[in-house]
């Protein structure tokens, strides 16, 4: 379980409280990076979120990946869709509020064209949210996913995380259907109010 004391857990290692981590245990963001690699997902456009900071930094540092920020999440979805049709696999990183901008592109591109869009959504708006707008927009996410009958999983535990990510990526690609992997504050520590 995360013990989120700081402004954000992403910069320090208390994704999981350090006292219950063995030295070789991997953090959630190491698991994301390694699982992307193992599944040959090379293209990673993103619109940042505080919790994703370390993951984004490490993906930038690894020459295996082509990674860059986009101006909008929709744009990133367009890019990975084009790339997949041309033989290069990708995934998009975003925050809950970014997901809320995607209903149109999911319904008019990713789903009807059967494109295996892989999304990692850092979940704001719950379990200690301090901004009411974030809490509200978060509540739109699962109803949108469910109304489009999209596959989605909320990752809360480190011990299940690699299984969820690896299997979901493989399922998205083989069934040519999008998937949203929601990174709960229970997994990442989230972002909490300090003062």
């Amino acid at each position: 379980m995360a013990a989120a004391e700081g402004q954000t857990s992403s910069q320090t290692s208390h994704d999981k409280a350090s006292h219950d981590r063995t030295p070789h245990e991997r953090s959630w963001h190491e698991i994301v990076l390694q699982t992307l690699k193992r599944n040959d997902i090379r293209l990673v456009p993103y619109v940042p979120d505080r919790v994703l900071t370390t993951l984004i930094k490490n993906i930038h540092a690894d020459p295996f990946f082509t990674t860059f920020p986009t101006a909008r999440e929709e744009e990133a979805v367009g890019i990975v869709s084009g790339a997949w049709m041309a033989g290069l696999k990708g995934a998009v990183l975003m925050q809950t509020s970014g997901f809320a901008t995607l209903a149109n592109v999911l319904a008019s591109l990713a789903i009807p064209y059967q494109i295996p869009l892989i999304m990692f959504v850092s979940e704001r708006g719950t379990l200690g949210e301090f901004n009411y707008g974030q809490a509200l927009v978060c509540r739109t996410m699962r109803p949108v996913l469910d109304s489009l009958a999209m596959e989605h999983h909320t990752a809360t535990r480190l011990d299940e995380f690699e299984f969820i990510v690896d299997r979901s990526i493989k399922q998205a690609i083989t069934t040519q259907a999008p998937v949203a992997l929601i990174l709960s504050p229970l997994l990442t520590g989230g972002k909490v109010f300090e003062k």
């Binding site: 293209l43 367009g78 890019i79 869709s81 084009g82 033989g87 290069l88 149109n104 008019s108 591109l109």
Partner: peptide, 18 residues
């Protein structure tokens, strides 16, 4: 058939892949 505004991003993805 939709996704208004995404012709250039889709083309960018194709260009990066090939």
């Amino acid at each position: 058939l939709g996704s208004m505004g995404l012709a250039f991003p889709i083309a960018l993805g194709v260009a990066l892949a090939q």
